[in-house]
């Protein structure tokens, strides 16, 4: 119970997100209409992705300092979960864009930046797979992970803000604060961020355990 309270919390928060996010009263607004509910399923993906990337970078730094392969397991799996969230974020965003902007891809700066960010992390996976020695893979993977994150931050947070974006909250489009006068959306949005991030971490930790079990079995086979 001590170990699994956060998994129960994740399930509870996600059930709440699904039920409240889909059924609750949402502000009626022109253009957005009911698609404003995408806030709980699309925007939260990016929050979850960034939080998990921060965790992955933390473990990459820790790996470089300690050379403990266990830190690398956490770094790669948190990145994997973050990539999953990123892809889901792009797909949900495209669906939403189809109904509000009229096209799946409108060349919006944030959309482009997100796609480039995903490319960066796909390159990270390919780099890792091109290295065969596990210690070297971990070390060079960690170095690129930190380096990519340093380039990812200006890409996501700085560049899109320098030009007009179609996203709510940019380029004269009213944002979250302007829509949400009675904070009804926030009551679902914040728990949704926590819920999705916990789910991502759960996926990551399960995969970390699988990785470690596989390694132990391999070692045993080699040593026996």
């Amino acid at each position: 119970m001590r170990q699994s309270w956060w998994k129960i919390l994740a399930i509870a928060l996600l059930l709440y997100t699904l039920i409240a996010g889909l059924l609750m009263e949402a502000p009626r607004l022109p253009i957005l209409n009911e698609t404003i509910r995408a806030l709980h399923f699309h925007v939260t993906m990016w929050f979850g992705m960034i939080l998990m990337l921060v965790v992955a970078v933390y473990y990459s730094i820790k790996y470089l300092r300690t050379n403990d392969i266990r830190n690398d397991d956490l770094a790669i799996e948190f990145t994997n979960s973050a990539i999953l969230f990123g892809v889901l974020g792009i797909v949900t965003g495209m669906l939403w864009a189809k109904f509000t902007w009229g096209d799946y891809w409108s060349g919006d700066p944030k959309q482009n930046a997100a796609a480039i960010g995903i490319l960066m992390y796909f390159a990270y996976l390919i780099l890792r797979n091109s290295l065969t020695d596990s210690q070297q893979r971990a070390r060079i993977g960690a170095i690129y992970n930190i380096f990519a994150f340093a380039a990812f931050i200006p890409l996501i947070f700085v560049l899109p803000r320098l030009t007009d974006s179609l996203h709510p909250g940019n380029g004269g489009n009213p944002g979250f604060n302007a829509y949400d006068l009675d904070s009804k959306l926030r009551a679902v949005f914040y728990p949704a961020i926590i819920g999705w991030t916990l789910l991502g971490s759960w996926i990551a930790t399960v995969r970390v355990r699988m990785r470690r079990v596989e390694r132990t079995i391999e070692d045993r086979m080699i040593n026996s």
Binding site: I116, G117, L119, M120, F147, A148, A151, P154, V158, L159
Partner: peptide, 10 residues
């Protein structure tokens, strides 16, 4: 190429 392009885009 694949490692540098996304990093260099900003």
């Amino acid at each position: 190429a694949i490692l540098s392009f996304p990093v260099i885009i900003p």
